[in-house]
Each structure stands twice: as structure tokens, then as C-alpha cells.
Design a protein around this nucleic acid. Structure first.
Lengths: 169, 169
DNA sequence: CCATAATGCTTGAAGCCTAAAATGTTTTCG
DNA sequence: CGAAAACATTTTAGGCTTCAAGCATTATGG
């Protein structure tokens, strides 16, 4: 089956709160549907245009920014995914010749992963297209809108982080 | 391995644009990191508190809103996932006794899925907690912030939708 | 009528993701 | 020194997700 094309609005679809803190829920559901919409479109285009996936793309992006390579653990932290996940992704990307692994002299537990020249070329193509796509999808927002949104999302993130760390304490 | 707790900011981590439409990219990366942060926390709590997952929760939420039940195809459209996905989720939820399937008299291809009494009880518990969690995570935002954010996200969604439908045309 | 298309759902293969256990290595400290 | 703790990575088992192919049923049009 292909992804459904008769979209019922995801916010409406997911809405299921009877009463109470309804405003916050509404906000969260809207943010979620918005992010999922963009993310799904980018995944679609990555697949159609480059036969790749978002996790692979993000993985390469990490390595692009680190010319000396990164350890799996470091990538795991930066991508906010588990270590086992990185192992699998790295295996496939290595298989495809986009990254290479190198043993670390001073710590035999660790390895570093880095882009191959082919991986670097490939990522450059993907990255350029990706940037275009995002610009295209968000072109309906004014400069003011973008600035406000950026600031509000920052506040949101801070709110969430502080709520999480309070809970842990 | 447990999820990484030393978070490097996801926006910083994913940022990889050299130049050009950098503003839009920055905005998208921030929205993504924000949504993922919240979503990850909710998944964590659903697992810890109810030993369930977000897809399961969303699935039950759909059925809660439809007392007469829904067909897999309808759920697939509402959840914006593929049909095969629904089949698997439904199988597990039925196995757990939270939903039941019923053949449709007038169309023998179709089935309807509906909550069992147990499923309804269970979802009620989960839903109440979920609403609390979201309120807690977003409590750092003022009423004004929430209103603005809601409006800006709506504009964003419209921008994305129109960009997507233009591309299809 | 009946062949064909469309529809509703399931299956299978492959990738993504997590939690937990296992393996090998380095560090700590008594 | 040597045992125990900490660390880096991989493995394993299981759930989530997609795409593509397949099966059964219903609708359509010559």
C-alpha cells in the first residue's frame, strides 16, 4: 500500500482530549502534525531522489561536520539515538562505501567512522537538494513569521527541557 | 545501551548547511529537535507508566473517537501510516485484548475494529496521564506564547501543504 | 453476463529503533 | 598489583514502518 493521500488533518485525527489542559494538548498536536508533514515529505524526496533515508542522511551530515571522524558513541549522542542503532546504520553505510571505519590507536575499544571521498561527494549532492526542499516548503512564511517562530520554538524547548530535568531530580 | 543523556543540542548537531537558504533550514531543524524532544519524552513515559508505545496509544485514540469502530483503511488514513502498519498494530492490540475485530456484513472484504471494554478502560487511564504530561512539558509557555505559536504553526502547515500540492500538479 | 478494474486487507522483505545482555578494554583504587 | 567499576561497542530480541506483491471481494462497462 502507498502512503495514504486523502489526509484527514492529523491534529483533528489525533485529538482525543475531553477537557482540562486542552490548550497545551492542542498546541502539541499541531506541532506534531506540522513536523510530521515536513518530515514525511523530506523522507519521500530523499527516497525518490537519492534512494536513501533520513537517518542515513543525518548520519552523513554528522560526519561531514567532523573531518577527523567520530566514534559511534559520539554519533549516538549527537543523533540522540541508541548505540545499537548506530551500529546498524554504520554497517549499511560502510557496505555502500560511503563511510569507512578506522581503529583508534590509543583505545582499542573504540573506532572512528569517517566519510569516504565517495560519501563526501554523495552527501554534498543530497545536502544541497535538502536545503532547497526545506526552503521551498517554508516559503509561505514571512521573515517576521520565521523569526517569531524560531524564538517561540526556543522557548518551547526550554520549557520542555526544564520540565524533564525537574522530573529527574 | 540507554538513550543518551548528555544531549548535544539537536539543532546544532544536525546543522550542516554551508550557505543559501539557511534561515529556513535553521527553522526546520529547530522545529524538528523540539518535536523530537517532546515525542521522545512521551514515548518514555508511555513505556514506563503503561508499558505501551505511541503508535498503540494513537491507535486506541482513534477508536475511542469512533464508538462504532473503524476499518483498518480508515485508521490508516487518519493515522497517516500505511495499511500494512495498521495490520501489525491491530494484531498486537487484539492479542492484548484491547480491541476486537468484527466482520462487515455488507462488504466481506472489510472488517471493523473497535475497543473492547478493557481497551476503553485502559485508554482512559493513558489518555488522562498523557494530557497531564503535555501540560507539564509546555507549562513554561505563557498564554500569549501558546496562542502565537499555534497560529504560526498553522501558517507553517499551510505553507508546506501548498508547496507539496504545487509539486504534485 | 463476465472480464477487468478498483477496493480492502494481509503478507513478506528490508530498514529503523529501543532496551538489555554480552564482549572486550581501560581506569580506578584498595 | 589485581579486583571491581566504568566505558565503547556489538549483539539479540522485539516492535514499528515502508514498499511491493498477493489474495479476496466488489464495482464497472462492453
Amino acid at each position: 500500500m502507498t502512503p495514504p493521500d486523502t489526509h484527514i488533518d492529523a491534529e483533528t485525527a489525533l485529538d482525543h482530549a475531553p477537557a482540562g489542559h486542552k490548550d497545551e494538548l492542542r498546541l502539541w498536536l499541531r506541532m506534531l502534525s506540522c513536523a510530521r508533514l515536513i518530515e514525511a515529505e523530506i523522507r519521500r524526496r530523499l527516497r525518490a531522489g537519492f534512494d536513501t533515508t533520513l537517518p542515513r542522511f543525518d548520519f552523513l551530515a554528522q560526519l561531514e561536520r567532523a573531518p577527523d571522524g567520530l566514534t559511534p558513541g559520539e554519533i549516538s549522542r549527537r543523533m540522540m539515538v541508541t548505540g545499537g542503532n548506530v551500529t546498524g546504520l554504520a554497517a549499511r553505510l560502510e557496505e555502500e562505501g560511503l563511510i569507512e571505519r578506522r581503529v583508534v590507536r590509543e583505545d582499542r575499544r573504540a573506532v572512528t567512522l569517517r566519510l569516504t571521498p565517495q560519501g563526501r561527494r554523495e552527501f554534498a549532492r543530497q545536502s544541497a537538494a535538502h536545503e532547497q526542499w526545506v526552503a521551498e516548503l517554508l516559503k509561505g512564511l514571512s521573515t517576521t513569521d520565521r523569526t517569531s517562530l524560531l524564538r517561540l520554538l526556543d522557548r518551547t524547548r526550554r520549557s520542555v527541557r526544564s520540565a524533564i530535568s525537574e522530573g529527574e531530580a
